[in-house]
């Protein structure tokens, strides 16, 4: 496994919400690894704030904080949302990236899925779907990424992560359907 593709257990799909064989082990996006800070593994202030607020999290090996959210219902889906320790600076504004990853296997992301996600991007006030890919590597992942003020309260960070997880869970069925249709069409004369 390439060094840029770190195995994680972010996405657990039980049942058949997504297309069979469409998803595999979750994968840390290249961007995340590339921006991992060389200094402290994570932001101690954010961890302290989470601890104080009672927010449950895990620390990924690169220092990202991981918040997990599960759907209700029979087909339980768990989504991990990553909070980057690194601050991104825009003038006077300091931001923190919050993202989740839906790994993709079995070929390229169907065009219909890309079309669908670009339409969503235009309609969503916050966050955007993208594709993380590594040249020469067949594996790709769908990313859903947003930012939050670097000094936002832990509650604010949590709510942003929750929002993103909800949005992703809401799209999984549709994405799975599009994948099934695309792959079905691919084998139909």
């Amino acid at each position: 496994m390439g060094t840029r593709w770190l195995v994680w257990t972010a996405l657990v799909v039980s049942g058949m919400v997504l297309a069979p064989h469409a998803w595999s082990q979750a994968t840390q996006p290249a961007e995340a690894e590339a921006s991992a800070p060389p200094g402290p593994p994570t932001d101690p202030a954010l961890r302290a704030a989470f601890d104080e607020a009672g927010v449950k999290y895990e620390v990924f090996r690169n220092g990202d904080l991981v918040l997990k959210f599960s759907s209700s219902g029979e087909q339980k889906v768990t989504v991990s949302v990553y909070v980057k320790p690194k601050r991104v600076r825009f003038g006077d504004l300091e931001l923190r990236t919050v993202f989740l990853v839906l790994p993709f296997t079995g070929g390229a992301v169907p065009e219909s899925v890309k079309d669908h996600l670009l339409l969503l991007n235009a309609r969503m006030p916050m966050g955007a779907w993208g594709i993380d890919s590594v040249p020469g590597d067949e594996r790709v992942a769908l990313l859903f990424k947003s930012v939050v003020d670097a000094d936002a309260s832990p509650e604010q960070v949590y709510r942003t992560a929750r929002y993103m997880a909800d949005m992703a869970m809401r799209q999984m069925g549709r994405i799975g359907q599009l994948v099934r249709e695309a792959r079905g069409a691919a084998v139909t004369p």
Partner: peptide
């Protein structure tokens, strides 16, 4: 064109802030 769609999605994956979208 699908190559453009693809490039927009890949760009989204690497941008720190914001994203490309298509409004129909």
């Amino acid at each position: 064109r699908q190559s453009v769609i693809n490039q927009l999605m890949v760009t989204n994956g690497s941008l720190p802030v914001g994203g490309w979208g298509v409004e129909r």
